[in-house]
Structure formats: C-alpha cells, structure tokens
C-alpha cells in the first residue's frame, strides 16, 4: 500500500526550483534512502512532505486514513539545542504535543508512550540525564524516541548521522533497521553517508541536477553507474 504518492512535484527555495517533475511513492514498510549533493533539494523535499513548506507545483497525496501528522520527524540538530537545559524525559515527552491540541499538561497516556519509546531504543536508563551532556549518539536516540512519540507508522529522518563517530553511526543504523524490519515502521532517511545508508535501505531516491536521477530498489541502484560513482567510483 502506498502511504505517500508524490506527483509532478516541483520544490525549491528562495523562489528558485531545485527539483522539478518529481514522481515517486512511499509504500508501507519501505526503507527509502534519499541521496543527493548539498543543495539538490533533499531538505526541501522533507519539508514539503511534512507541510513545513509549500511546493511550487504538483501534489503530495496521503493514503486514506494516513496524514502527514502521522509522520515522526527527526530534524537536523539546531544551534539552540547545543546549550539547551532540558532533561531527556522532557524532550521525549514533547513528542506527544502534536496529538494533544490545547490540552495543557501531560497525562498518564503520554508518559507511558514516552517511557515505552525510550525503552524501545534502550535509553530508559538516561531518563533523568541532561540532554546537552549526552554523547552525539545518545542525543540522536533521544530525538528518535521523541519522533516515535509523535507517530509510529512512518519516520522521516533528516541527516541523522551527521557529526556522529563511525561506531555511533553504525549503532544508529542498526536501530533504524530494527524499527523497519521488526516493528514495520516505514523509514524515509535523507543522508550524506551513502555507503552506510545503503546497507540496510530497500529503496533509493537520488536527487541531482534539478531532477530525480534514480528511484527504485537499492539492489538495482548499486549496479547503476550513478550508484557506483556515488559509492566511491575509485573502487
């Protein structure tokens, strides 16, 4: 089943289109990896899917019974968060805000949801720690737990492994793979780290030169010239 269908989408920033005529689907259970150079429109695509930014033209359809509010978003880290005094549990809980409307305070349901998301990612032990003192890998898991609080059918990750060391990166990919394989969470991941991201993804969307250069199975992508070049052409 297609959760999201993208048709003839044109997106960009500052009034200039970066990608036009984009067509692809995200099906339930997919692990889609979005690749491309800086400025190829990856982040704009993410923002368009989430409704943070409007597309210049084209359509984004959501399956009946599914909406963009049911996508758990893991944005890139911001400058503000670097010295933000926040407890881990406070951060994870804030993922429940979207579903709460004007309800002012967290109830038992929200606290249980946050606790179970943390348990799933193995961070229930650092619940009382301060977010800014955590390692990069732990911070990413906290943000992932927050995303799972807001939605658990589909998650959308924007460059999640930037600034992580190789060990933490590998560990993070394992977590994502587990969520996708064992829990059936649909994953869309924007990434720079081509080799690592391709290891466990099932589909690839490669953006560049104002269009989609490739969309299809990962197994096919790695055989194409584009895939080989991106995976480190020298080898």
């Amino acid at each position: 089943m297609n959760l999201v269908e993208i048709r003839d989408l044109t997106i960009g920033y500052d009034g200039k289109p970066v990608v036009s005529g984009l067509n692809f689907d995200i099906s339930a259970g997919d692990y889609l990896c979005v690749l491309g150079e800086n400025g190829s429109g990856k982040s704009s695509l993410v923002k368009a899917i989430l409704g943070l930014k409007s597309a210049y033209s084209g359509h984004i359809h959501f399956a009946p019974g599914f909406s963009r509010r049911e996508i758990g978003y893991m944005p890139q880290k911001t400058e503000v968060q670097r010295d933000f005094p926040a407890g881990v549990f406070e951060v994870v809980l804030s993922g429940c805000q979207g579903a709460m409307g004007f309800k002012p305070f967290y109830g038992k349901a929200e606290k249980l949801r946050a606790a179970s998301a943390m348990e799933r990612l193995g961070i229930d032990g650092i619940r009382n720690e301060c977010y800014r003192n955590l390692s990069g890998g732990q911070q990413q898991r906290v943000l992932l737990a927050r995303a799972l609080c807001s939605a658990d059918k589909m998650i959308l990750l924007d460059e999640p492994t930037t600034a992580l060391d190789p060990l933490a990166t590998a560990e993070f990919y394992r977590i994502i793979e587990r969520l996708n394989r064992d829990d059936g969470v649909t994953v869309v991941m924007v990434s720079h780290d081509t080799a690592g991201a391709l290891e466990s993804s099932t589909k690839v969307l490669h953006l560049g030169g104002n269009e989609s250069l490739f969309f299809g199975e990962t197994a096919e992508y790695v055989k194409t010239r584009l895939g080989k070049k991106f995976l480190g052409g020298g080898d």
């Binding site: 911001t78 804030s94 979207g98 305070f105």
Partner: peptide, 22 residues
C-alpha cells in the same frame, strides 16, 4: 503556566513542533 509544555516544545525545536501539528 497553562502553555508551559507548548512553550518548551516550541523553544526546544520549532520545526519538529510545526511538523507534528503544534
């Protein structure tokens, strides 16, 4: 006091909050 949790969420991460419908 009433908006405390919303203010926290929006201050900590505005784009995430927007994406979830806050």
């Amino acid at each position: 006091v009433v908006f405390y949790n919303k203010i926290f969420a929006v201050t900590f991460d505005e784009s995430f909050s927007r994406a979830t419908g806050v």
